[in-house]
Amino acid sequence: MRRGPSPFLVAMVAAGLVFLYAPIALLILYSFNASQLVTVWGGTSLRWYAALAHDEQMLDAVSVSLRVGLISASLATGLGLLAAVALVRGGRFRGRTAFSGMVYAPLVMPEVILGLALLLLFVSLKLPRGFWTVTAGHATVTLCYATVVIQARLAGFDRSLEEAAQDLGLSPARAFLAVTLPNIAPAVAAAWMLAFTLSLDDLVIASFTSGPGATTLPMRLYSQVRLGVNPEINAVSTLLIGVVAAGVVAAFLIQQGKTKT
């Protein structure tokens, strides 16, 4: 039997969580503030949400971000699945070290460097910057996260299940699809979710790789935040937090359910 945490530890956990959540809670609270002044409570109101609905630029940025996120997350998950298979099952192939280096480096590489590097690529390829360059940039960065998530599950997956399927008459490719994929599906879904969220969040890579007409939501928020606090940003932030939190909690519960059965 595990001993419970001491009062000191309980206090630290509680204080840490307050630290993590207090600013977010205040932000959400003040998004329902009727007052124009962001730090003075003027009664409850949904006026900033209403204003949001008429903010064409903001809506456009949301739409760009969603489209970039959907496409880049799908690309990243597909490529990440292949990369994970290569890393877990490939044994030693030529260029393996370089490959795993490229897969893991972006996880901790400062975003500013990645953004700069990608921009130089697009400039030297004479690609017009815009929607597709942001999407490619996001797919590259999130591919690494997707690979790590899928790889962890695949490495823990009992190889003999796939062998059993082959033994019973399925070709290696069909065995992978019929047995391995259904069993690592939660990880693939989690990888997609992670890639999508990261894409939705990213400011730095997008700023470097985007061009006119492809302003993502974080870029839009950033330009407004630089001008100061604004209740409309509170509203859009609250919506974003709500969507992401719902997604994460759902993904968590799905994973929990999977591991229980």
């Binding site: 009992d158 003999s160 299940l161 062998e163 033994d167 019973l168 070709s171 069993n183």
Partner: peptide, 20 residues
């Protein structure tokens, strides 16, 4: 001849039953 074309079937050590 790959495993899936061999008329030989195996009972795996930890059974390898498909959990799904």
């Amino acid at each position: 001849v790959p495993p899936h074309r061999r008329p030989v079937h195996m009972m795996f050590q930890a059974y390898a039953l498909f959990p799904h």
